[in-house]
Structure formats: C-alpha cells, structure tokens
C-alpha cells in the first residue's frame, strides 16, 4: 500500500492520519506540500487531512481546493486512485467538486467536539468493508462547519446509488434529530463518489484507534484500506 497525505497551510490532523496509517497499515505515507505540482507515482490512496486550511477564513476548504496540488489529486482521482477527505479534507473535496454537496455552519452555530454514533450505510467499499453492514460505531467529530447540504435531487441520487457512507444515529443506530450533531441533511456524515473510491466524512476515525484513546472504532477503516491495497 502506498499513500500520500496532502499538507495545506493550516492542516492540523496531517500528523494524526500519518500516524494511524503507520500504526495500522504499517506504512509511512508521503507528506506532500500543497504547492507541489506532482504526486509520487503508484499511489493507492491520497488523504486530505483535517484542520483549518488557510484559516478557513473564506468558506472552509475553498482556498485549499484551488491549491496547485489539487490538479494532480483530481487527475489521480479520475484514474481511480482512492481519495479520503476527513473533516477539512471533506470540505476541500466538496469545494473541489470531487464530491457533491457542501458543508455549512453547524445548525447550533457552535464548534462541536464530541463522540458521535454513526451507522455504516455503505459497507461494500474499500473504506468500510471491515465494519460490516449496518454496524453502529462511535467516532469523534470536531468541527464548526459540518452541516452537510445538497439539493433534494442530489440527496435522492446519493441514497439511490448507496453513496451515503455514514449517517449520524443514536447508540442503537436510529436516525433522530437529537442524534444529528450539526443539522446535516438526512443525517449524512460521509459520502462517496460515483465510483465509490472517494470518501469524504466529518468524523475523525484516526482519533480512536487505540483503547487508551477511549475506543477503537476508527481502526476498521484502516484495516479495510490495508486489505484493499494489500
């Protein structure tokens, strides 16, 4: 397995995701600066990490989506390379047009950092296979702009094509407004591209991979990737 993590100015989960890949997948990813034009050859996976790229002073992810490296990311994505965007990375993917929809300010208007429950809606992907269908997992979120939105047709299409990877639920896996931390449309926490190779999600699986962190529900995502690219 060969992976790269893109580092934007203001990324702050780049080290965390690199550590998770090293710890679970046993590989050191290439750290690629946003101004680079090219990516290493033979990549299986590109990760856009969490953080506040360019301070998120414009719309979250909007400036990073225009970074020089993003042209290379898009062309690799078109060629089928897996692209994972977590939190700010998800925002960048929507701003770059690699995933549909957008992330608005949380419905409660405040930054939210806490564990949330998620149901794995699409278990047949390179990211989620190890979870099993309809698994309910606990993963932290930490964001101010995680309120997923898209027009109704897009949302219908995502559902019809099974491209909703995760939804916010209660601990029993039930969708409820009270279990939706940020007001996301249809409780969407993560979405997939049409070819199911690009995943964007607001929760941070890299933060719960070791019992000492309070849980290990983030681990199966990395196990899935490792199996996919073994």
């Amino acid at each position: 397995m060969k992976a790269a993590v893109i580092v934007f100015p203001g990324s702050n989960c780049d080290r965390d995701i690199a550590d998770a890949l090293a710890k679970i997948c046993g590989m050191q990813p290439h750290m690629v600066w946003h101004k680079d034009q090219d990516l290493p050859e033979g990549l299986d996976l590109i990760v856009l990490p969490g953080g506040f790229s360019h301070g998120d002073y414009l719309r979250s992810g909007a400036i990073a989506a225009q970074a020089p490296v993003m042209r290379a990311v898009k062309s690799r994505a078109e060629a089928g390379c897996a692209v994972l965007g977590i939190c700010n990375g998800f925002q960048i993917l929507t701003e770059a047009g690699l995933l549909p929809g957008g992330l608005m300010r949380n419905a409660g208007l405040k930054f939210i950092c806490r564990d949330v429950w998620l149901k794995v809606d699409a278990a047949d992907t390179i990211y989620t296979r190890s979870y099993g269908s309809d698994a309910v997992i606990r993963i932290p979120v930490a964001h101010h702009d995680g309120n997923y939105t898209a027009d109704e047709r897009t949302l219908d299409k995502l559902e019809a094509e099974g491209r909703i990877a995760f939804r916010y639920t209660d601990p029993e896996g039930n969708i409820a407004d009270t279990a939706n931390p940020n007001g996301s449309a249809r409780s969407i926490a993560g979405v997939l591209s049409a070819n199911r190779r690009i995943l964007g999600l607001m929760p941070h699986p890299e933060r719960l991979i070791d019992p000492i962190q309070g849980g290990t529900d983030g681990r199966p995502m990395f196990n899935s990737l490792m199996e996919a690219f073994a």
Binding site: N12, C13, R15, D16, D19, A20, G50, K110, F111, I112, C113, R114, P140, A142, H204, E206, R207, I209, I212, Q213, G214
Partner: peptide, 25 residues
C-alpha cells in the same frame, strides 16, 4: 464549554475534560 474546544486533536488525549486532570500521551 469543553465541547466547543477540540480536546482530541493530535490524537494523544487520554483523559478528556471532566476528570481530575487532563492527560495527554
């Protein structure tokens, strides 16, 4: 208060707010 603070970034927080002391690895 503390849910408005990212208390887990850096992935080394091993005792979150609410206990006697915060602990990072």
């Amino acid at each position: 208060i503390w849910e408005q603070y990212d208390h887990m970034v850096m992935a080394d927080t091993i005792q979150r707010p609410g206990g006697d002391a915060g602990v990072v690895r």
